[in-house]
Design a binder for these strands. Structure first.
Length: 632
RNA sequence: GCCCACGUAGCUCAGGGGUAGAGCACCUCCUUGGUAAGGAGGAGGUCAUGAGUUCAAAUCUCAUCGUGGGCUCCA
């Protein structure tokens, strides 16, 4: 046995691992029944226990949490009077919220805090766990003036033990687990500052948050920071500007998107593909107006439940009209326009419907969060017995459409009834939730449950996609609705010639065209696949005498429906190649003396590399193959 | 909306109480060049907007608008 076990009292996880000779120099914590605890925690004799080493993923959250403590220590040294609140580890790092005298932190503060942390870490300090009574804790934090800790203390359930964690003199009320000592903190970085409400409630005081991250070693930290750089390079706002795809003009208003010719072209291609696949897969396309009378929104329940997200009404001849935040009431109006038979159902009606929602200025974000956007919306009206089959159909369709853009790594959730603000009979909610789960299960699609995450009118399936660099985005949403058919008194005539109530599914697959465009732009890092690229091929002339041939070829290619441009700039070939690459054009064809003589081009593409000389006929065949959109 | 930061040429950014700067892009000219930037010249800015302090404000102060990072919410 090594002598490190002397650090741990008998009966603790550390001592236990030492006895079994499982305690290593790099053991950060222990895992008991799937739960990570620290080495100082007491365990029962018969527990099954395994060590967690620094390089394992379970160790990360422990290391990060401990790093957050050291950061809080540094902050309190540098900014006396600052109170601590909470500081958990999160997905890619950690944060700590402070109540700082005189407001938030600046970027310069971060550098100073990092420096102070390094000073603290200079000599190794053990993390010491101390089990205390509520009264002891209360006295301690009261004496320190840490009012937030007192509040947290009061919120700890009676049967949960109260623990303190020390490193050196610094102490925090904390459930742990923590690393054995500070030598495990060797790769961290403070990343940003932010405001955050105490306990996430806008009614509470705004605290000063610092985000940071930490890893087991410098190499992993470096990789993470590089990934952040990569994400920055892919930022759709940056690419949108560089590639001249869209802009947002403050003269027009935040969250209102201007589509430039190239962006509008890509968007049109997406929408045309969308229309084709919908028609192929049993939908009919409809179109509806952008505003409607207030009565409509009263009936739908929007004014009651959704008014905060709607714009103020406009007065038209004394009647209030609202700009639409959703398309559903209009689709319902079409349904109501004539009597429906059970034989008509299901009706699948789809629309690229532009809606407007009030977003507070602070939430707007490029194309991902806007005030006016186009949903790829559809409503399916059906008999109750058709519900599960329709859900299966929509789920399949959603996977197909997202797959067309290369999104195959999905995260699917069933969102259930929200606690507040929901309408309709709870029994109907349960029925709908069961139908969604059954639909997913029948398709063999794994999912998790988002408790209380449903819309006010019904539960839903949310499909999130994972992009090329592993980030997750919400796209498809499939919502069952028993309520609107009730509210609008929708009926169909059944076999029994009596009136029956249809069920509705609301669904958007791409989500919103704006957001999907932004996600896709980042996913492809601006390099659209051939079928979506605004310019598919650029013809590069070597010298002026090749322009005429290139122009002729350009019109030939245009007559084959290719998107082609000629670069006859007064530049050398190298410069033209660079321009073509920067514009993310997927193919370039060099045209010089040789190509003109032999009647072809020298072709180079992003996907297939340098293909050398190719005749015009082969070039066209090649383009036809590569530019074909996904099968509908 | 709230906290913090930022707003200078089409873009990326420097400057900072005393006549507004660079690179790229743009225009003109030279060059006709073979696989990631050929050369020279030119044009381009009420320094976001409005007030205030000052002999003097792009620079300091305040307000407004906008943008960014978050918080809450969501397609």
């Amino acid at each position: 046995m090594n002598n490190s076990d002397s650090r741990y009292e008998k009966g603790t996880a550390g001592a236990f691992l030492a006895e079994k000779e499982l305690l290593r120099h790099d053991t950060v914590a222990a895992k008991v029944d799937g739960k990570v605890i620290d080495l100082q925690s007491a365990i029962s004799e018969d527990a099954s226990i395994s060590p967690v080493h620094a390089t394992e993923s379970d160790a990360l959250e422990v290391i990060r949490h401990s790093t957050a403590h050291v950061m809080a220590d540094a902050v309190q040294r540098l900014f006396p009077g600052t109170k601590v609140t909470i500081g958990p580890s999160i997905e890619n790092g950690f944060y700590y919220d402070f109540d700082k005298v005189g407001g938030g932190f600046t970027e310069d503060d971060l550098a100073a805090i990092e420096k102070e942390m390094k000073a603290i870490l200079k000599d190794r300090k053990s993390f010491v766990r101390k089990l205390v009574t509520r009264e002891e804790a209360r006295q301690l934090f009261d004496g320190m003036g840490e009012s937030y800790k007192l509040e947290l203390l009061d919120a700890i359930a009676e049967d949960v033990p109260v623990t303190l964690y020390y490193h050196g003199d610094w102490v925090d009320l904390c459930a742990g687990p923590h690393i054995p000592d500070t030598r495990f903190i060797k790769a961290f970085k403070l990343l940003s500052t932010a405001g955050a409400y105490w306990r996430g409630d806008a009614k509470n005081k705004m605290l000063a948050r610092i985000y940071g991250t930490a890893f087991a070693d410098k190499k992993d930290l470096r990789a993470h920071l590089d990934a952040l750089e990569e994400a920055k390079k892919r930022d759709h706002r940056k690419l949108g500007k560089e590639l001249d795809l869209f802009s947002i003009d403050d003269q027009i208003g935040g969250g209102l998107v201007l589509w430039h010719p190239k962006g509008a072209l890509v968007r049109t291609l997406i929408e045309n593909h969308w229309r084709s696949v919908h028609m192929k897969h049993g939908y009919e396309l409809i179109m509806t107006p952008h505003v409607g009378r207030s009565k409509l929104w009263e009936t739908s329940g929007h004014l009651e439940n959704y008014a905060d997200d709607m714009y103020a009404p406009m007065d038209i001849e004394g009647n209030p009209y609202y700009i639409k935040p959703m398309n559903c009431p209009f689709h319902i109006a079409i349904y109501r326009n004539s009597l429906k038979s059970y034989r008509d159902l299901p009706l699948r009606w789809a629309e690229l419907g532009t809606v407007y929602r009030f977003e507070r200025s602070g939430q707007l974000h490029g194309l991902l969060r806007v005030r006016g956007f186009t949903q790829d919306d559809a409503h399916i009206f059906m008999r109750p017995d058709q519900l599960e089959a329709e859900i299966r159909r929509v789920v399949r369709f959603s996977l197909k459409l997202l797959g067309d853009y290369g999104f195959t790594d999905l995260d699917i959730m069933v969102a259930t009834r929200p606690e507040e603000k929901s309408i309709g009979d709870p029994a109907a909610w349960e029925k709908a939730e069961a139908a969604l789960k059954a639909g997913l299960e029948a398709e063999g699609v794994p999912y998790s449950i988002d408790v209380g995450g449903g819309a006010f009118y019904g539960p839903k399936i949310d499909v999130k996609i994972k992009d090329a660099i592993g980030r997750v985005w919400q796209c498809s949403t499939i919502q069952v609705d028993f309520n609107l058919p009730e509210r609008f008194d929708l009926t169909y005539v059944g076999e029994d010639s009596a009136k029956h109530r249809p069920v509705m599914i609301h669904r958007a697959l791409l989500g919103s065209i704006e957001r999907f465009f932004g996600i896709m732009l980042e996913h492809y890092a601006g390099a659209f696949p051939m079928w979506l690229a605004p310019v598919q091929v650029s013809l590069l002339t070597v010298a002026d005498r090749h322009v005429e041939y290139s122009r002729k070829l350009e019109s030939t290619l245009k007559s084959h429906q290719f998107r082609v441009s000629v670069n006859d700039d007064n530049e050398k070939l190298g410069a033209k190649i660079r321009q073509t690459r920067l514009a993310r054009v997927p193919a370039m064809a060099v045209i010089g003396d040789k190509e003109v003589e032999q009647g072809g081009v020298s072709l180079k593409t992003r996907a297939d590399g340098d293909l050398g000389f190719i005749s015009i006929e082969d070039f066209i065949r090649f383009m036809e193959e590569k530019a074909a959109p996904p099968e509908i």
